[in-house]
Design a protein around this nucleic acid. Structure first.
Lengths: 387, 387
DNA sequence: CTGTTAGCGCTTTCAG
DNA sequence: CTGAAAGCGCTAACAG
């Protein structure tokens, strides 16, 4: 309710245009034009209730539809009105209620991302890449950790479904047997892009690196450095990365006339302790390996620690190659030779593909696509026998 | 012929009255009541529209309030009705719409957490601790990265305000000059708990470690190992951790009769590259240090790399102590002596304090509290001159 | 024990 | 260019 600043009248007050971004009023009783100075205390009590568009509307004596339009820079809006709304919003510390927005638009402006863990730097780098694209577009990223546990991954999908995410990025756990739990998203019309740890299912969008090629390059590098008995700490068999890296390893051996020795291939479930056990098992072999290709850096590093403990000299007695180029690989001694993955690119590419699907009116029309990025062999001390 | 919808039995089926106009059946084999409507194909089209309580209500010919009550295990509900609702919900793949729930209850079941970065493992471990408490309580954690940038931190606060988080956990950036931007939460009645990187403001709830004590212990350890010229790579002056660790360093020196030398104290803005520069500056001194206490592990490790590059022997010519016990500290060579922080505990404690405030009806009544956790000196090779 | 009704804050036709 | 009104999915009195 507006009160004339001159005579105090409340009934005979009419709006009379907007000047300098402020609503001007006219008092019919004392024939006086005035604007409400911004010094006036606002009527909201933030304690009870954050400012809403209705508060702004009331303050300005306009409708909330107009406020909504002004806030979104709708074209059909008077410039003065727009300014006044924006100014009042600022003064009231108005923050749009994303819950209400999401409910009305059926769009949460949030994308989910499920990663197996974020203690190592690999997934954080990917998440950062994804956020670099998402945030400027006005989207938030809801990060879930499956903790390498299949049930947790399933639970995560339900959380994200409840949060009504507009899209989902996933890297599977080492024990995920199938992707049935992601079919729910498909049914709900929510696009999903898999990255890094994907499943056999080819009918999905995914971003991966050329694991076969990377593994091949890594193992060839070991062979060229004189290794003949090359062991492999492999990943869980359900993951494509494990299968492809194993294949790259095997093909590199075959192509160089080295016979495959099954006792040199041990499987690791991505659990750090198990990597240590795998390494011990390999070093306990009657004829221990002179080279090691591990499915990832943490496993390679765990093996290096075991080797050091046992006095096995790296790289002289054992040359080691990892996968991913975790920052730690450059810090340990000797430095770990590894296959660098473009982590930021993986995140950016994956979320761009996701946005393509989100933005396309009809998600069906987008063909599932597999984007394959390249790895780079980073040579460090752990593999250079002759030097 | 009637078939049990649960176990498929056909013989042990009996009629069991009529509920809401439908013939109800009872399966004696699996002790289950059902009506035939459940056999009918569901009417929802998930593509257009995920199941809502209204869909369940229509299917069961009951009101949506009843569905709501059944779903939340409200006591005043018929057990049979509850079961029917739950079963239908399952069949319809019903997922509660958190946006609608939040709007209605004015509670998003989400707490925000702002961390400066999550490439190092320190903050991830804290986040995991927080999630361990939050998830079982039905809360989600919305993770924001301020990226050590004050403007980004301010932007993050607005995002979280819009998301209507029920509470906030924050660790400040190295350049945050004040906490005015968090006052918005106070005004909105949203509790905030600061952790690790806090501000001078004592009138807030916070979880920190005893930085002074940790630094003191670390520096005394260096002195006891024969260091006399101990340098300090200090953190940004706006942070309490920097001030307190510096103070611990200074007091340890004073208490052992070692005079303070300002040229041995260099300040670092938490930017990795700058740590390297700081180290170089110290090693370029006419009389270089024989000991180094760094405000955190990344700085200590950066300094160790510079030292190695220059052929400075660690620990013989330079003993090093870091802070936090990042996993990498155990992997580099020599191992980095450091002050372990109970990261999981920090996260768990902080979010418990937050929940205490969220759950208390009147947030005002909770007195701001500062919880101080202990650090532990982890001695590794980087500091053991006599061995 | 269950149904009715009125919002929560925002968007979005549809009329002016 | 602006307003009125309906509705997004859910909760919460208030009646029965």
């Amino acid at each position: 309710m507006i009160k004339c600043v001159k005579c105090g009248e409340v009934d005979a007050i009419a709006k009379s245009g907007i000047v300098r971004g402020k609503q001007r009023y006219y008092c019919g009783k004392c024939d006086y034009y005035f604007t409400l100075s911004s010094e006036q205390p606002l009527t909201i009590n933030h304690k009870r209730h954050p400012a809403t568009i209705l508060d702004i509307a009331r303050e300005l004596q306009i409708s909330k539809s107009t406020v909504s339009r002004a806030l979104h820079g709708h074209s059909d809006i008077n410039e003065q009105t727009r300014k006044a709304v924006l100014e009042t919003a600022r003064r009231m510390e108005y923050q749009p209620n994303l819950l209400a927005y999401g409910l009305a638009k059926n769009k949460s402006m949030t994308v989910g991302i499920i990663v197996p863990e974020f203690i190592n730097s690999f997934f954080p780098f990917i998440i950062i890449g994804a956020q670099e694209v998402a945030n400027p577009a006005g989207y938030h990223v809801l990060i879930c950790q499956s903790n390498e546990s299949y049930p947790t991954e399933v639970a995560n999908t339900n959380v994200l479904l409840s949060s009504r995410v507009d899209g989902l990025l996933v890297s599977l756990t080492g024990e995920t047997p199938n992707i049935d739990h992601f079919k729910k998203f498909e049914r709900a019309g929510i696009p999903v892009v898999y990255f890094n740890r994907v499943c056999k299912d080819t009918n999905v969008s995914q971003v991966i690196v050329d694991d076969y090629d990377g593994a091949f390059k890594g193992v060839v590098h070991l062979i060229e450095n004189g290794c003949r008995r090359i062991a492999h700490i492999a990943g869980p068999p359900n993951l494509q990365i494990s299968q492809n890296r194993l294949k790259g390893y095997l093909d590199a051996l075959a192509q160089h006339g080295i016979e495959k020795d099954d006792s040199l291939i041990v499987s690791y479930d991505l659990n750090p302790q198990q990597a240590t056990l795998c390494a011990k098992q390999l070093f306990d072999l009657p004829t221990p390996p002179d080279g090691l290709f591990a499915v990832n850096d943490p496993a390679a590093i765990a093996a290096m620690l075991v080797a050091k403990e046992r006095g096995i000299k790296i790289p002289e007695e054992l040359a080691v190659v990892g996968f991913s180029n975790e920052p730690t690989s450059a810090l340990i001694e000797p430095g770990l030779t590894t296959l660098a993955q473009p982590m930021g690119d993986i995140g950016r590419t994956a979320i761009k593909m996701l946005f393509d699907q989100i933005e396309s009116e009809d998600h069906e029309t987008i063909e599932p696509e597999t984007r394959v990025l390249k790895t780079t062999l980073i040579v460090r001390g752990s593999s250079l026998k002759h030097k």
